[in-house]
């Protein structure tokens, strides 16, 4: 790969180049998927599985209408808002629980139960509590994603290097300072992968809740496509939802992560860098 000097700017350019390269690799993978899809289309015909190109055409025609944008934005807004709420709650409680052995022991069984309940059950409950409203979607998203973040944050704190804590203490850092300057940085390794999973879950759950609670958004559009047996439109909506997810994951989460985990690059041998 690129052997760049370790100067700040060169380093940043290198990371950006690697980031773009990973985008290129992603496109290659997706093309493979499209090939399989095309084969499926040729085997089963238009009604069951429209061709990828026909679906892309459907996406493009959908994108011509401003309604589509606002519908996609609606779902994205719900998913991201729920994700941010779940993320903040999960990180706060998770970090606190990581520092306290008692809280960790209490949290264990609760998390097992909460993670064991399928999201669909929460949707039913939330529909009873909130009716067909934003609240239903948000509640479901928060409940479904916060345990993922919480567990990761807790694990990150619990497995931190206590030697570094002692070191910071030796140089006069109080508990809060130790948590912020030393603890949180170590949580990152556990937290970032969990955040990516949580974001994906947030989108999936949001669409599902929208569909079941009939509150518009991509889920609502999917419900309509199903009613019309319009597979091409349904697939187009699915593509749009996935595109929004990828946009946020790769546009926001991953750059944040690679910024925070820059030092890991130094540990990787040349050639293994992506």
């Amino acid at each position: 790969m690129l052997a760049l000097p370790t100067s700040g700017l060169g380093d940043r350019i290198g990371r950006t180049a690697r980031f773009l390269w990973s985008g290129w690799a992603g496109i290659a993978g997706l093309s493979l998927l499209a090939t399989v899809w095309q084969l499926g289309h040729e085997a089963y015909g238009d009604f069951i599985l429209p061709a990828p190109l026909a679906t892309f055409a459907a996406v493009l025609s959908l994108l011509e209408s401003t309604d589509t944008w606002s519908t996609a934005f609606e779902t994205t807004r719900r998913a991201v808002k729920g994700f941010v709420m779940a993320g903040s709650v999960g990180v706060l409680i998770g970090v606190a629980a990581g520092y306290s052995a008692a809280m960790q022991r209490l949290a264990g069984p609760i998390l097992t139960v909460v993670l064991g309940v399928p999201p669909i059950a929460w949707i039913v409950l939330a529909m009873i509590w909130f009716g067909s409203s934003d609240g239903t979607v948000m509640t479901t998203v928060v409940i479904a994603t916060s345990p993922i973040v919480l567990v990761a944050a807790m694990e990150g704190v619990a497995t931190r290097d206590r030697g570094l804590d002692d070191m910071a203490k030796a140089f006069g850092a109080g508990p809060i300072r130790r948590c912020l300057a030393v603890g949180m940085r170590q949580v990152g390794a556990h937290l970032f992968p969990a955040l990516s999973i949580a974001l994906g879950t947030a989108f999936k759950v949001a669409v599902m809740a929208e569909l079941l609670a009939n509150v518009g958004g991509v889920g609502g559009a999917l419900a309509r496509a199903r009613a019309h047996l319009d597979v091409a439109t349904a697939l187009a909506w699915i593509l749009l939802a996935v595109a929004a997810l990828i946009l946020i994951d790769h546009g926001v989460l991953r750059p944040l992560r690679s910024e925070a985990e820059r030092w890991r690059d130094a540990a990787r041998p040349w050639g293994v860098r992506r």
Partner: peptide
């Protein structure tokens, strides 16, 4: 007033 500590292991922050 103030002490410094050099530990048996380096105990460096890996991200810094």
């Amino acid at each position: 007033r103030r002490h410094g500590v050099v530990f048996q292991e380096p105990r460096l922050l890996p991200w810094a």
